[in-house]
Design a protein around this nucleic acid. Structure first.
Lengths: 199, 199, 199, 199
DNA sequence: TATGAATGAGCATTCATTCAT
DNA sequence: CATGAATGAATGCTCATTCAT
């Protein structure tokens, strides 16, 4: 009496491999991310891996993809709890959400952002940026007087990239100054100062 | 009669190898950056390479290091020509300098910023940031009323990282919007808006 | 109510697999003749294949075996239509029959004769040769004055091998010269010249 | 005081690898002809093999090529010692030469002719055939009355293929009948009977 | 019987590094 | 110093075969 349909078995196996991939990446770094090693970590044979992924790259892509999707989801979820009206508060909310999301799997962020060729992460990272940018654009569109920048699209590009990079760097480097609170404050200032700067 | 002292010979050889490394990196990408290939490009034997560099990584590091030092020098030189008084003009000058400096060897920037594990660039990139940050800090220190941010050091950290990343991404992606002029304008707004934002 | 006895089921399954093997061989070549691929072509699972064949080799052998048996049958059938009295005419008939038989599945001949290790074909190809040799021997025995060769068995060995190889090579290479008609003529001359050569 | 120039070192190594390839082929068969195994047999590391051959196929090709060239040379050498005038004697000489040449490395002939995909041998085997064919054609051209066949080229094609295959098969199978002497006799009869057969 | 997921030994190939010359 | 042939561990990947279901 098999409860789970075939699909579920596959899904479980894919899960197992992806998780092994993630762990291998975090534990051994990108340079040691080899199919044999992942298979060993997953407790399967190298051949089995190829029943679920056409090649090494495909697996890596899924791991990376999943990471950025998770970050993206965490940002979205986190934001939902912090919706607020005023501009600076909004910027603060975004910053906090991003910091939380990036901090959630800092070890993997380190690999994804610092060991992988950026090219590998590009697409999914861009998806995250797009998602946040859409929120930003919607926000700006809904509150025309929140921004004095001439182009909302350009403003969103500027803001999102700047904030994302500041957050990433901060999470990875954890400098003494600014501390988290300061950082959020400065980001809020950066964003609101920019938006209210006369265009 | 050997004219040149050993040191000089070494220096010339190191130079030759580093240059070969740079060319290999640009021409073939990081994946094909192998010691054999570099040696061949340099017109020496693989064994000789190891007389000047302990391992492949060391060579790569020097190439990267040199790249960021060059960028750093170009920024400094470029800035010297644009020294100006007013805040926004200063921000504009920095942005322009950075864009120029990054654009000067865009092919290598692509490899260094998108193919190499970011970790490799870390130290020297940080050096560039430090250098610019120092300029920024000095500027802010000299003009206390230019900034309302509580900590000059933090403000410099924020500004430099934000501007550097925006410039890098823009050079690499060359998006239609913002175009260069717009970008400079927005960066100026970002920086001056931030600095004048009440802390 | 199962209509067919187990035997019949097996036979049908064997058939199905062998046919799939044949098609795989023709379509993809010997290098891609893998059990998985054959099973897929047969619409069964790789495991099932092993219920009918102990290993890959056994299946391949049956496919090859079947091919040469088919050729053998075609030669026999074709010959029945060309029975004639005079020696040269007989040689011509054999040549034509062989060419027809080999041409009938040229695609498979190519694989069997040029891609497979010849060893694989050995036994069954020998069976074909034996069959034709028997006809030849019988013919020679029935017409003692048709041959001046001392040993009919040896003469048959010589003639059959020579003719078979000439026919095979011609079918596979299809050289401009000799064309088919010429070839048949030359084979007839070869055979009758040989047989009438004083022993 | 290095006596041998660089070339010679390479040549020795190539020789060593080719010989190891030959031995591996003979000892373990085509299926076990792997680069690692050849390297081990040669007493070198797998990587070294690739300094002399771009890939496995290239090595195999050289082994096969060398085999057929050797056979070809042996035939030529052997023939030089048997040059004779009369037709049947000539055919006998060719047959003997071929049998000698093929017998010289029967173990390798087995692999080359029965295990390798024929395609691999094709080109070099064709070279042998061409070489012998040229001799035959020259012979026929020089003695117009030696042949009554209409086309010398076609006659050469027929004769060479027939004789080559008979010789090969005989060497590989070593049947009781015909024995070597008989075989040579029958081949002579085959050839001279054919050539004198009225076209 | 039939399945097909899982296996794992094996393969061809690469490349950073060494060391005898 | 310079050489470059030699190394050999490691890699991504395949496929004949097995066995729990």
């Amino acid at each position: 009496m098999r409860k789970e349909p075939r699909q579920a078995r596959s899904r479980a196996m894919v899960e197992r491999i992806v998780e092994a991939g993630r762990r291998t990446l975090v534990a051994d770094g990108y340079d040691r991310f080899s199919t044999n090693r992942v298979a060993q970590t997953a407790g399967i044979s190298p051949g089995s891996l190829y029943q679920y992924f056409p090649d090494k790259t495909a697996l890596l892509d899924v791991v990376v993809e999943r990471y950025w999707d998770d970050v993206s989801d965490r940002v979205a979820a986190s934001l939902a709890d912090r919706i607020s009206d005023s501009g600076p508060a909004m910027a603060r909310a975004v910053a906090e959400s991003l910091l939380d999301a990036l901090d959630a799997d800092r070890a993997l962020l380190r690999v994804v952002a610092e060991e992988l060729p950026a090219r590998r992460s590009r697409q999914r990272r861009a998806a995250l940026e797009r998602r946040v940018r859409e929120l930003a654009t919607a926000y700006l569109a809904a509150r025309p007087d929140a921004s004095r920048r001439p182009s909302p699209a350009v403003a969103a590009w500027i803001v999102v990239l700047a904030v994302e990079n500041l957050a990433t760097r901060w999470v990875l480097d954890r400098p003494e100054r600014p501390d988290r609170e300061e950082l959020v404050e400065e980001i809020a200032a950066l964003v609101s100062g920019y938006l209210t700067s006369p265009g």
